[in-house]
Simulated scan of single mutants.
Amino acid sequence: MKSKRIELLPLALFLLPLCMVLLGAGCEKEEYSELVEGYIVGSFVCYEVGTDGVATGDYTERGYCILLEGSEKTDSYWPMDFYTFDLSSELFEFPEKVIYSSVDYNGNDCGPSFFPDSLQSKFKITFEYRDVKKDEGVRFSCGICTTMGPLFNWKDYNQVLLKNVSKIVN
């Protein structure tokens, strides 16, 4: 009998960690960044796209473009690091000339409408963020572009979820 217990012990010691790894593999942690500072530098409302890839005819919630403090993209043609749909519209009173109630995207390049340079550093926030998971993201399309110039490449920018958002008064 002793020999059977001794043989089962190594097997149990091997299987226990294996089971722990397999059980933990399905659990994805929702890890947010540390607290960072950034600016709301633009916004957009586009058309929702269903899971079948076809436009639904409905509009998305307003999306906001965020530029991180000290970002290398500050002086780029499209000054943003990522975008989100979960920023409360009550956080700031955006001037009506830069936030519209109807569809608001740049029809020339299918990108967001960026705020004028004079407002690029006005709407400052602190927040934590994480990239959306594939099934969490808002699927959208921003219309037919009319320009022959460069088109905004949404794939270069991640959609993020925010938490612990606070307004910084300048």
Rank of each mutant, 00 (worst) to 15 (best):
M80P: 00
W78L: 09
L162G: 00
F14V: 10
Y59W: 07
C145L: 06
F92M: 06
L18F: 13
A25C: 09
E96G: 13
E136I: 04
Q120E: 14
G149N: 14
G42I: 01
N108P: 05
E37V: 07
K124I: 00
L16P: 01
T56K: 10
V98H: 02
D109W: 03
K163N: 10
K2V: 07
P112E: 03
Y47S: 11
M80H: 03
L35D: 07
D109A: 05
T60L: 06
E28N: 11
L161M: 13
K167C: 02
L162A: 02
Y129S: 03
C65N: 02
S89E: 15
D156K: 14
C19D: 04
T84K: 05
V41G: 01
L162H: 00
K73F: 11
Y32E: 04
V165W: 04
R62G: 00
L15I: 09
K167E: 07
G42R: 01
F94M: 10
E7P: 01
S43A: 15
K133F: 14
P95M: 09
S33F: 03
K29G: 04
L119P: 02
F114Q: 00
K97Y: 14
V165R: 04
R5Y: 13
S101P: 09
C142L: 10
E48F: 02
S118L: 11
L68C: 06
L16I: 11
E28K: 15
Y47Q: 11
N106P: 04
S121C: 09
K2N: 10
V45I: 15
E7I: 11
N164E: 15
L8R: 10
D52R: 15
N106Q: 10
P79Q: 09
F82T: 03
M20A: 15
T74S: 12
E72R: 14
L8T: 01
R130P: 01
L11S: 06
L22R: 08
C145N: 08
S102Y: 12
P112W: 01
L68G: 02
S33E: 04
F140I: 02
G24S: 14
E96Q: 14
S89M: 12
F92S: 06
K124Q: 10
N106K: 05
L11H: 08
C27S: 13
S141V: 08
R130I: 03
E30W: 04
N106Y: 03
E48R: 13
L23A: 14
L91C: 08
L119D: 07
G57H: 11
K4E: 04
F85K: 05
G107A: 12
S3I: 12
Y157A: 07
G143E: 12
V103N: 05
E7G: 08
N106D: 15
Q120Y: 03
L162V: 02
K73P: 00
S121L: 12
L162Y: 00
V169I: 15
L151F: 07
D156P: 00
D109E: 12
